[in-house]
Design a protein around this nucleic acid. Sequence first.
DNA 1: TATAATAACTAATTATATTAGTTTTGTAAA
DNA 2: TTTACAAAACTAATATAATTAGTTATTATA
Lengths: 187, 187
Amino acid sequence: MPRVGLDKTKIIQAAIAIANEHGIEQVSIASLAKNLGVRPPSLYNHFKSLMEIRTQIAREGMQRLEETLLRSVAGKSGEDALLHFSKQYLLFANDHPGLYEATIQPMNTPDKVVKETSKNMIDLLIQLLATFSLEEENALHLVRGLRSIVHGFASLQRADGFQMNFKVEESLLYTIQILCKGIKQET
Amino acid sequence: MPRVGLDKTKIIQAAIAIANEHGIEQVSIASLAKNLGVRPPSLYNHFKSLMEIRTQIAREGMQRLEETLLRSVAGKSGEDALLHFSKQYLLFANDHPGLYEATIQPMNTPDKVVKETSKNMIDLLIQLLATFSLEEENALHLVRGLRSIVHGFASLQRADGFQMNFKVEESLLYTIQILCKGIKQET
DNA sequence: TATAATAACTAATTATATTAGTTTTGTAAA
DNA sequence: TTTACAAAACTAATATAATTAGTTATTATA
């Protein structure tokens, strides 16, 4: 019975690797145990349940995404900021598909940390829109619109909903540009 | 052993009901059997696997959604058509949450019928954008943008991603209006 | 060195999908 | 009307999953 030396961090890292390679639904106690060279019940020394592991993945995902987005708009404003925000959002979903997947699913399962990080991202978008000096209610409408656009692109892209042959990133940025044209006209 | 008189239609109807009430992930051989008053293996006389049942739900969902959308834009064009399209898309996702959920998931699982119906919806959006006489490449960008918007609103709404207190439908329609403002300026 | 915490284990429970093989029912032909 | 057959529904069994209870052994520390 040679001790493997597991801890929460190693388990979550393995879980994220599985999620990114094979999808979040492939993260199971069984697959994790096999990957870590351990029997399934051993994982219960570190986590209470599979759901707790999934929630932890979601937290990590949200936090890394938030950091990425914050970095993407540092020192930028207006349309420029929105374009960089959107581009990095899409890239993140592309580079860490399982992690991104995990961040969406558990909006059902209300985890405090996940929800709070999500709220931070909304606040960030509100800040980015501030440059356009919209009426408050309209700004909130557009925050939803922007979230929908980036999330929509991220998930439809992953789902291969876009079967056309030219770049998805271009489409996203073009859409944001057109939206900004409309916003500028509005104010 | 009194025969219950199951058939594919009744099974799928029960599955859709479960999906709409409790989510697509709650549609299982076990839950279906219980609902239909039958032992789990009996369902295999009608479907090869659970996946086949889920695929069938997705097909139904896509077909009903397509019909809804076609009806929503009959006799309309331009911005008006886009607004009605979007509104009905969101309503559909709202009224048939499980059915809508089913239509998204299996973009991974490539089912011919589902993909074809999906393509029809893209073609419909292309038609709707025709009024704006955009360059072809830009029109394709915006088709993706529009799909992302409606899908983004539908899924974020469902996931309770929108915790603010005013109407989601308004936000969607406002976003579409702003986008149209931008489109008109583009051409 | 002895002890206490705990990592990892085995064994067992419950729930799931699925397969094989059996019984029974309904229908259609003799 | 009877017979025969296709198929609906069943029982029994297998495989895999999550989880719990209880055991053993390792490691850190007192």
